[in-house]
Structure formats: structure tokens, C-alpha cells
Design a protein around this nucleic acid. Structure first.
Lengths: 213, 213
DNA sequence: ACGGCAGATGCCAGTGTCTGCCAGTATGAC
DNA sequence: GTCATACTGGCAGACACTGGCATCTGCCGT
């Protein structure tokens, strides 16, 4: 290496790739928000970044992929936070804390572009059924992983006791849907609070009335 | 009308349409099961029934549609059963009863073709991510309808109180996912039992241990 | 510093889903 | 029998996505 200042310089090729990837995401989000997800074609996104359409598919496996790349990171971060919670916490409480932490982190993001992009993504997913489906599909793909983590905390084996799968399903699928609906009801509380409330209801049992604070 | 014997004869045209529709579903299921969902093309299905591919799309909006036509009916039936439950039952209990009833009805279906087709559908959906996604997309499309029904029973307005949406999401999305995972764990209990257990856990609150009977 | 290597990209052709459009045919109403 | 209507087929085309091949460029050993 030339001079050892940085910990590990990624190399020119790698940086260029990263820039292309970011540019594709940015262009895609702009156009999705301007014209809608369905009305935006891959060709248009590629043209905006001045790469060939073929190249787009070398960075993202599908049109949905570019829209949900942020959501994926979010899930990953949440799971890391979940695993790091104190071991004596009940499962849903631990999951709630992790989810709320992540939402708060995005909400208080200093750089505008990150925070705005996060909010845009929420709206995009809400607006497009195709995206919503893709979102759940990706979540389902991680169901095993999540169930395993939950099983560890519950002290049971997901292969024998199905409860981890139930909790995993609820977390991955029902909570986002509920938060989405919640936002639709007009309350403009930040997502972090809505997430907290959704978990609260689940934790208490859905049939028992709970205060909505 | 010609002669008023039957209550309302659907007419030749209508009957022919119904036959075409059934034939398409049958052919599709056979080929899906034989070669898989993805490996089966619309052209092949159309050719098997001797209609043009164009006509296929006049009966079904997509390839997924033909595979999920049964699931749609199932949801509809469940919702009807839900609305018919005694009004003093808690929401999840009522939903559980309705869902279990429907599953039982299919399991004890007298005509083999219906029962077999139901089981085939389950396996198809489990096996194909694309189908799973479409399934969720359709469920999401009915979220408002379900939330409205639940709101009536809870005595709250879904436009103000988001809890109906939470329950609806859980019912439409988390429960099927959990049941699916449950089946994957190897237990070969009938779906009706798995559904019942899943609702039981939700009703009690996910953090409290519950017997899995 | 040079040359070869591997990865990144572009271009092209092709598959498969799905949608308008227009014309031909069959059904039901009179 | 006649006519409007609905159903159908065939065609052209948009769009997502994939494989193959040629080209170029950053990377690395010598």
C-alpha cells in the first residue's frame, strides 16, 4: 500500500462501484417519488445514472430490490440490536426496544438525505402493493434467521416449539403493517412511537383492552 | 325467458364461461404440481385448455391469480363466518373459530378433487416465493375490508383506533406464515389445529407461556 | 514499468408476463 | 330472421429479466 493512514482503503474499483450503487438508489428514489413505482422503468433509472440497463441488474436483482435496499439494512440492524438486549428481557420487550432504537436512530439522523430517504421509503411502500408484497417476501425469507434468534432468547428450539416462528412472523409482518395503518389514520407521531405501541398491544394480548397513550 | 322451471338458468354463454374457468384452474394446478409454478408458462396452460393465451388473461389477471383463486374464496368464506359469530365473543376468539371452521370444512371435504386441490395449493404456495408474495399482496388488498369487520365487533372506528388494523394484519399475514412454518417443522397435524393454536398464543399474549396442547 | 488477469460494463438477442387494439364469431333478445 | 352484445383470437408492443460475448479498466506479479 502507498501510505498507511486509513485503516483499509477500499480501492478505486470498489469505491466506484459504491458510487454507482448509491447513484442508482438516489435516482430510483427520485423517480419513484415523482412518478410512482410502477410508472418508473428500469431503463429510465439506468439512463439517469448513465449506465446500461443490464448493469442495473448487476447491482440489484430486481426493481423492488433497489427500493427495499434500505429496509433490508433496517431489519439487519434491528436484529443485531435484538441480540444485544439484556438476556432476561421478555422476547417482545427486547424486540420492541431494538425496533424502537432503530427507528429513533433514523429519525434523528443528522444528514438530511438519509432521513428523507427513509421517510420516502415508507411512503413508497405504503403506496405500492407490489412493493408491500416484495417487502413481506423478503421478510419471509429471513423468517428462519429471526426465529432462530428468538428461539435462543426463549430458550426453546424452533424446530420443536413453533412459538418463535409465530413471534417472528408477527414482528416481521404484522408490526410494519400495523404501523403503516396507524400512520394512515392521520396521527403524525413518529414511527418509533407507533412501533412501541404496536408491540405493547401484542405483548398484552390482542383481546385485552390497552391504553393507546 | 323461455320456460320458468329452474330458479334462474345461467344461460349457455355463462355456463361455457364457467367451464372454461374451471378447466383453466384444473390445467394450471396439474401443471404447477407436475413442473412447478415458475416452470409453467401461461401459453402452456392456455394450450392445454385450447384457448388463446390472450383469453387466459380475460379470466385471470395474472398467473398468480389462477393459483390463488382458491385462497381468495377461502378468505371470503372465513370473513363471512367471522361476521356470523356471536357478537359477545372476543375478536380473536371469533376469528379463530371462523378460520378453524373453514379449514375443517376443507379437510373433511367429501369430493376428493376439492380436498386434494386445497392441499396442493398449500404446497404450491410454500414452494414458490413468487406465489407467497402474491398471496400477501392479495391479503394486503383486503386489509381495509377486514379491519372494518373487526372494528364493528370491537365497537371502534378503524379510522381512529388502529387496533383493528393490527388484528387484521396478524390474521391475514402472521397466522398463515406461522402455520406454514409450523408445518415445515415436520408436525403433520391438520391445518385446522395449527391455526387454532396460533390464535391461542396471540390471544394470550405472546410473552406469556401457553400450553401447546 | 510492463503485461497479463480478473472484474466490471456494454451490447445484443431472447424469454415470459401482461396489455391495447381490431376484427371475426357466437349468443341472447326482439 | 335480425341485430346488438359479449366473447374470442391474433397481432403488436411494453417491460422485467437473463445469458453470452466483446471490451475496457483497475489490479497485481514480475
Amino acid at each position: 500500500m502507498a501510505y498507511s493512514g486509513a485503516v483499509d482503503k477500499p480501492g478505486l474499483r470498489e469505491r466506484k462501484k459504491q458510487r454507482t450503487r448509491e447513484a442508482l438508489i438516489d435516482a430510483a428514489y427520485s423517480m419513484f417519488c415523482a412518478n410512482g413505482f410502477d410508472a418508473t422503468t428500469v431503463d429510465q433509472i439506468a439512463e439517469a445514472v448513465e449506465v446500461s440497463p443490464r448493469t442495473f441488474f448487476r447491482y440489484f436483482t430486481s426493481k423492488e430490490d433497489v427500493a427495499l435496499s434500505l429496509a433490508d439494512e433496517q431489519i439487519t440492524t434491528t436484529l443485531e440490536g435484538f441480540a444485544a438486549q439484556p438476556a432476561d428481557l421478555p422476547v417482545l420487550i427486547a424486540m420492541r426496544r431494538a425496533a424502537v432504537e432503530v427507528a429513533r436512530a433514523y429519525e434523528s439522523e443528522t444528514t438530511d438525505s438519509d432521513r428523507v430517504r427513509y421517510l420516502r421509503m415508507q411512503d413508497l411502500i405504503s403506496a405500492s402493493p407490489a412493493l408491500m408484497a416484495a417487502c413481506v417476501e423478503r421478510a419471509a425469507a429471513r423468517l428462519d434467521e429471526v426465529a432462530r434468534l428468538i428461539g435462543v432468547r426463549m430458550g426453546v428450539d424452533p424446530a420443536v416449539d413453533p412459538r418463535p416462528y409465530l413471534v417472528a412472523s408477527v414482528t416481521l409482518c404484522a408490526v410494519p403493517a400495523a404501523v403503516n395503518a396507524w400512520r394512515a389514520t392521520g396521527r403524525d407521531a413518529p414511527d418509533s412511537e407507533l412501533i412501541g405501541q404496536a408491540f405493547g398491544l401484542l405483548s398484552a394480548g390482542l383481546d385485552h383492552p390497552a391504553d393507546l397513550a
